[in-house]
Design a protein around this nucleic acid. Sequence first.
DNA 1: TTACTAGAGGACTAAAAGGTCTATTAATCA
DNA 2: TGATTAATAGACCTTTTAGTCCTCTAGTAA
Lengths: 146, 146
Amino acid sequence: MFKKETEYALRGLVYIQMQNQTGKRPGILEIASEIDTPPSFTAKILQRLVRMGFIESVKGKNGGYYFDPEKKELPLKNIVVAIEGEKIFTGCGFGLKHCDEKNPCPLHEAYAPIRDSIDNLLATETIQNLAKKDNPALSLNRFNGV
Amino acid sequence: MFKKETEYALRGLVYIQMQNQTGKRPGILEIASEIDTPPSFTAKILQRLVRMGFIESVKGKNGGYYFDPEKKELPLKNIVVAIEGEKIFTGCGFGLKHCDEKNPCPLHEAYAPIRDSIDNLLATETIQNLAKKDNPALSLNRFNGV
DNA sequence: TTACTAGAGGACTAAAAGGTCTATTAATCA
DNA sequence: TGATTAATAGACCTTTTAGTCCTCTAGTAA
């Protein structure tokens, strides 16, 4: 569905928000360990998210990543688009360049509603929203020797 | 959504079936040109499909690719699974290894129905079915200097 | 039975995705 | 101020995906 980079970004952001809610600012090692991703790669991804303005960071002791509480909730779609671009929401399931409403490819009618519901899901769900839910699967990682 | 290999395979197969319906067995150069894909790469992909038993081929003059008319209709899912494996139908939208009904990740409930409808679409639609539809988008390729 | 045509096979190259490592910079605190 | 801590930056490496090219083999037809 998504690239690894996008997956790790989403998982990392949800974890950061979860920690922020309890007044903490997690660092990379903690984040990578909890969401079960390669630390250096995760660091690189979070750095990009900082540069793009999705999250903030502080260096030094007690440093770490956090969301600016002033900002609005962050829809998953924003992250996905920032990392992967729009193709996933506009592209044709068949990979045809000239497929659209006027020149639908054989899969068009069948795939369009699916693509739209993905679009809708990602535009509606936010990092903050996901962070509010209990998520056993997220924290499970640490117990499975993955 | 899919890898290039899968896309090209699907497009190629639909084109082959369309030609078979009019009593023809298209060759690689024709196929690649019509579906707008790199000829050598397309050849390699079709060869694999032949080896896997999805289509037949004959060499020499008037050779080309064709479907065994004895065989049943071919669901898109079979091709996708043969090329990409099952992950797309079973994987978690969030990329978590331990996400399932019992340990749902934050996205699980929302994503599951989408994944299921993709599964259902690909299991239901067949190459033969798609080949029956008019598809301007498929043949359009040749007119756009793509 | 030779000449031609067209698929088969595999070695090779290119680019993108995924991931590591090390040196640097900035914050904190003793 | 200096030691320590943790993010930053970017060069580098590996794997996978995408794609090319050349030789070989098998049919077809004259």
